[in-house]
């Protein structure tokens, strides 16, 4: 099980408290959306989960073990920008994860292993609707296609946790709706816990099984420096006076990921309809 536990986590930069006393347990296979105003610490929360930053106090447990303060292959990530390698083709971008895994010195696979990795990558590209674009460089893809590629690339290492940092923020509404269908399908079909930072409340409620709001309870400028955001109810937030989780919704009606191995035909049909919108060649 890869439940994620934040155990009284604080994050400070010098005197500046960003996050205060974050206490939260995220169940395996949930889809958590983090929302809140700019600068409320939701991205810092994600970065700590990613291993890019260490908590100042407290600890983060994943599957019962303390999290290493370094990004690793067990946690995939998709950023809003710069998520794919510009110097590699679409196919190479997906394969590179497997090459890192199996070729420690060269970082490059040859012969039969290469062909196996290629087949695997093509299957993934097909699943995200990028079949036919294998030899293009990312600069030739639209924003939505680049994010699809970033998803395929992240999924290739089969992470248990997928972190999304405003991945669809820069996309047009129509394309965003298509990619929502895709991410739902991915979450349904893989053993994945998804944590997504977003600005878009409707996106948070549409996709998430749980929506967590971050907020800074005190807003006087002289206090902003000293108190960070916290997680918790309003009263606790006021007494603690840091940025915290102020709302934690279980989304209703209750969504759960379908049991693995059963993909429903409806989602797949949606996906096929949806991908055509996102192709500049088709428009």
């Amino acid at each position: 099980m890869t439940g994620i536990v934040f155990d009284k986590v604080w994050k400070e930069y010098g005197d500046h408290v960003v996050l205060e006393r974050i206490d939260i347990t995220i169940a395996p296979r949930s889809f958590v959306a983090l929302v809140g105003p700019s600068g409320c610490g939701k991205t810092t929360f994600l970065r700590m989960l990613l291993g890019e930053e260490a908590p100042t106090r407290g600890q983060i447990l994943v599957g019962g073990a303390p999290l290493k303060v370094e990004p690793g292959a067990d946690r995939g990530v998709v950023f809003q920008r710069y998520s794919v390698f510009p110097h590699l083709t679409v196919l190479q971008n997906v394969m590179i994860g497997r090459e890192f895994e199996h070729s420690r010195f060269l970082g490059k696979l040859l012969g039969a292993k290469r062909r196996a990795a290629e087949t695997e990558a093509r299957t993934l590209l097909d699943a995200v609707g990028l079949a036919g674009h294998e030899t293009k460089y990312p600069a030739a893809l639209s924003g939505g296609m680049q994010q699809r590629l970033a998803l395929a690339q992240a999924l290739n290492r089969k992470p248990k946790i997928l972190l999304l940092d405003e991945p669809f923020g820069a996309l047009d509404p129509g394309i965003r709706a298509d990619i929502h269908v895709l991410i739902r399908k991915i979450w349904n079909e893989n053993d994945l816990t998804v944590v997504m930072v977003t600005h878009d409340l409707s996106e948070a409620f549409r996709l998430g099984t749980r929506v967590i709001a971050f907020e800074r309870p005190r807003n006087r400028p002289e206090e902003l420096e000293r108190y960070g955001a916290t997680l918790g109810d309003d009263l606790a937030a006021q007494t603690q006076a840091g940025a915290s989780i102020t709302r934690d919704f279980e989304v209703w009606p209750k969504k759960i990921a379908s049991p693995l191995g059963e993909s429903d035909a409806g989602t797949q049909l949606d996906l096929k309809l949806a991908t055509s919108n996102d192709n500049p060649a088709a428009s």
Binding site: P71, F79, I96, R157
Partner: peptide
């Protein structure tokens, strides 16, 4: 982001230097 992405794909420092930084 690119260096972090490579790490989440399991790349070592050497692999990042060789396959991400050098070609760029």
């Amino acid at each position: 982001e690119l260096l972090i992405k490579a790490q989440t794909l399991g790349a070592s420092t050497w692999q990042i230097a060789l396959r991400v930084v050098l070609p760029q």
